[in-house]
Design a protein around this nucleic acid. Structure first.
Lengths: 156, 156
DNA sequence: AGTAGTTAGTTGATGCTTCAAGTCAAGGTA
DNA sequence: TACCTTGACTTGAAGCATCAACTAACTACT
């Protein structure tokens, strides 16, 4: 078929391999710490954190899914779990019955406050302290450029 | 407890949020393309690719797990699936019966050759072409530094 | 030779994610 | 009013990953 494939040269391959390795291992490492210390995975943590910073500690499901970088389906399952643990509750939005609003409960907030320091420490250890401020800035720009290609519908 | 948490400042938070978003979305996007076009996920692809570049298209399980950035258990499940599809076969190593050697079959190689162009194209589109050569080099260095913190046991 | 300990890999259960299909509410359209 | 159509979720099944427990093969000690 397409014989005109633009294969990767040595530098490109090296760059991609390094990124791929990081892409595989960092999420696992973060999940491991969170799971062990708080019984949450990274997605669940992100959901709770996003709620805690929202007005009224509430947010509609679609927004929350976007904020936490997940699909609506995934979020729905996760919020059901979090709800059964008493960290979140859901109610239909009065002005539009299709919309569901999720709210962080006091227990959920307290739990998040317990979990946050350990998580922040890990992010520091693995990412922030591993890089110079310049590198972190480079990484931010790079991540945004890649994200723009992967998910063009998110102007930011 | 520990009230002396070093929270993230605005720049640090921005950098981390951008990385996190990329970390969540890029693997999904790559998996999606591979799954749709080739019925493989990224880990399976990596395993086949690693085998194809090994002497005799063969490798012991532990090495392969390291190469593909996964655990031995995960690899074992995956190789079982790949074996049942006829892409790989396993045999015990004569000189040490504990060791298992996995080998890429001709069908597996042919399948990989079919899948590779589409995958390379995606890696180009999402990563290589999104960045300047300097940025790719920055990203390689950054990834290696992060990886060294996450997984200190791998000197490279 | 016998026993304990280590290494390499496998397996099964559990839980999370994904995908496709479903529900239910709201906004046209006629 | 009845009928599509779209939007916003929810659900159930299937697949995949993770974890802990297990087996088998080798090594070291006595």
């Amino acid at each position: 078929m397409a014989e005109d494939v633009r294969w990767l040269n040595a530098d490109e391959l090296q760059g991609w391999m390094a990124l791929a390795a990081m892409l595989f291992k960092l999420p696992g490492a973060l999940d491991f710490q969170l799971q062990r210390d708080s019984g949450l995975n990274h997605f669940e943590y992100t959901v709770l954190a996003a709620l805690s910073e929202s007005p009224g500690r509430s947010r509609r499901m679609s927004d929350l899914a976007g904020e936490a970088n997940g699909t609506l389906s995934r979020l729905s399952h996760v919020v059901k779990r979090l709800e059964s643990r008493g960290f979140v509750h859901r109610r239909p939005y009065e002005e539009d019955g299709r919309i569901t609003v999720a709210t962080l409960t006091d227990e959920g907030y307290a739990y998040l406050v317990e979990a946050a320091p350990g998580h922040v420490e890990m992010v520091r250890k693995y990412v922030i302290d591993a890089l110079t401020p310049e590198q972190l800035e480079q990484l931010r720009v790079i991540s945004e450029q890649i994200l723009a290609k992967v998910d063009p519908g998110k102007p930011c």
